[in-house]
Write a protein that binds this DNA or RNA. Structure first.
Lengths: 342, 342
DNA sequence: AGACTCTCTGAAAACGTTTACTTGGCGCCG
DNA sequence: CGGCGCCAAGTAAACGTTTTCAGAGAGTCT
């Protein structure tokens, strides 16, 4: 149906090689030929066939983005960051989400062979088959938020430990003594790091109180209800992500517990909603879009320089404590409006 | 680097044809051959090269998703809906965002030739080059939220007109007489439809009061400030999307105007945040994820049946009025908590 | 026992490009 | 005036698959 290079060549009365050369201006062609080719190409609405082109040139100008799930603002932000960087470099984005386990990820990964020039992968799962041997060999890869030794390529990991420790320390400094932590799923690397940071932040004297969650609002809600009904409710709650913090907030509000007056609350991620709940949520800001951008740039250099570049480097993405009113250590209304407007 | 079908054939001591047949179980092969091929393939970590495969088979198992911008929750939801449907059918997703104009979209579109089996496109822009002739001819396409006559293929459009009319009528019924509308950009089809719905909802007696905006929170904020400072502030404000409504809400709050007591407020889209602002925002719910799913399904049938199926059908995606407290016509707190938990 | 049919396997063409190599024409220099 | 190089254009190979076609071998029927 669609016109091929042969059709253009025939119409322009030249060889297909000349058409290719003209269109890629790889080598000089006579103005006359050039003119005819261009005219014929536009007449026929010719567009090169990407598959054929990448078969021979071994370049797809596409990079694969493998995510655990596309749900929620966290990933939306990440996609956005990656997309902007990719489009600035003329690259396409093949997005794939793997609901859950590594086996599924390995599958998705396999089917990307010959489809992408490189891979951007976020795989916080622990256990199960390692992804390393599922990777089409030689495919440049950049990992995000993974525990795997970065034998595969460069990696970017959010400073989950540091952020959680800083937040916990902040709560301790604010005078809270009994600080509960709603953790994420046990097979998630980031979740574990945050628990570790929480314990570190408590310090030697502190006693840890960890409640299970799974990063969903529902689990935060349940945890909040449990805590509110407890004989010994904590003075503060630090949820491993904002989504759970918000679920918890609703459970507490529903139970008549005032935040932060009765129980202080803090989250992690600084998703856009965090500013808008009431009271505004104290949290740890993670610039995921920026992480996406950096990861893509890193991938681009890895692709350009197959094996020499940044092999096995792990880079930590810094985080930032964002103190709002939900933790009770803030001046209140003004900050909220200012932030909301930024 | 990576193993090819030839390597597998050599190792299994069979022809490449047998390897291909075994791997696609297209035709019966002897158990012995099958066994050898499978063993060789797994030994070599063989993965078929997607480009080569799609060059000959004319199937990429990938569909292109072209969006105006990936920013915000609206698109995040859409991507999610499409992704789920796609992965259920074993399809990949090539995502591309076109910041702005149709020319850029045409460009992105052209480069998808040979990369995708079909196209899912959301292009609300009006004016500029039509996309129709930029389309690689014969590529099945499904449009979303577009004004273009769907000569290209099937189309799904949100009932912007109906939603805006219903919302305006609701405000009128609630007793407001002076209802302002913060509109979206002038080159956006949905924006225009919503203005049209607003006017229709006002009815014969109503007098329209339209303020310019561009769908961003910033523009909503500015509009809100203007309105608050006006000599004759309106009794109600209907913003063309939630993002602007939230911007407006902050401007009003900042100016000391109480919502809904002094001025009622309503938005459009029901983005997740809408439930969490205070007061919770009355809005029009659009199930974008569902629209994405339906659009993809429709595209799948169009791909399966090249030209017979649903050519030029336009389907309207229904919307739903969601009354919360910001419009002053609700019972208040209970609804909020209930909704937030759902 | 010979021919016919059926099944499995291999050889080779095709998909639409890019690119190394070849050819031919022309200008320049000796 | 003839050979030498240079440049533009064409020819063909290659990329890694799928698929058509043909051939070989075995089994069956007459």
């Amino acid at each position: 149906m669609a016109a091929t290079i042969k059709d253009v060549a025939r119409r322009a009365r030249v060889s297909i090689a000349s058409v290719s050369r003209t269109l890629n201006n790889s080598s000089s062609v006579t103005p006359g030929v050039r003119e005819r080719v261009l005219r014929a190409a536009s007449r026929l609405h010719y567009t090169p066939h990407a598959a054929a082109r990448s078969l021979i040139s071994r370049r797809t100008h596409t990079i694969g983005l493998l995510l655990p799930d596309i749900h929620g603002e966290y990933f939306s932000e990440l996609i956005r960051g990656v997309d902007r960087a990719a489009r600035a470099r003329g690259l396409h984005l093949l997005v794939s989400s793997t609901h859950g386990n590594n086996a599924e990820a390995a599958d998705a990964l396999r089917s990307m062979n010959g489809r992408v020039d490189g891979l951007l992968m976020m795989s916080p799962y622990i256990g199960g088959a390692s992804l390393e041997d599922a990777l089409p060999s030689g495919l440049p890869t950049v990992l995000m938020n993974t525990h795997e030794p970065a034998g595969i390529g460069a990696a970017f990991v959010v400073d989950d430990f540091g952020g959680a420790r800083a937040m916990t320390a902040h709560l301790v400094a604010a005078g809270y003594e009994d600080i509960a932590h709603i953790r994420g799923p046990g097979n998630d690397f980031q979740s574990l790091e945050r628990v570790r940071g929480y314990r570190a932040g408590l310090g030697a004297g502190g006693v840890a109180r960890v409640i299970d969650g799974d990063f969903t609002e529902e689990s935060g809600y349940l945890a909040g209800r449990t805590l509110a009904a407890s004989d010994t409710p904590p003075q503060a709650v630090f949820a491993a992500n904002d989504t759970m913090a918000i679920g918890c907030l609703f459970a507490l509000t529903e139970a008549g517990v005032r935040v932060p007056h009765d129980i202080a609350l803090a989250g992690f991620d600084d998703i856009p909603i965090a500013r808008f709940v009431s009271p505004p949520l104290t949290t740890v800001r993670v610039d995921v879009a920026e992480m996406g951008r950096r990861a893509l740039e890193s991938l681009v250099v890895a692709i350009a320089d197959p094996d020499a570049a940044g092999r096995s480097s792990i880079e930590t993405v810094p985080v930032e404590l964002v103190v709002r009113t939900s933790c009770g250590a803030d001046s209140g209304h003004r900050t909220r409006c200012k932030e909301a407007r930024e």
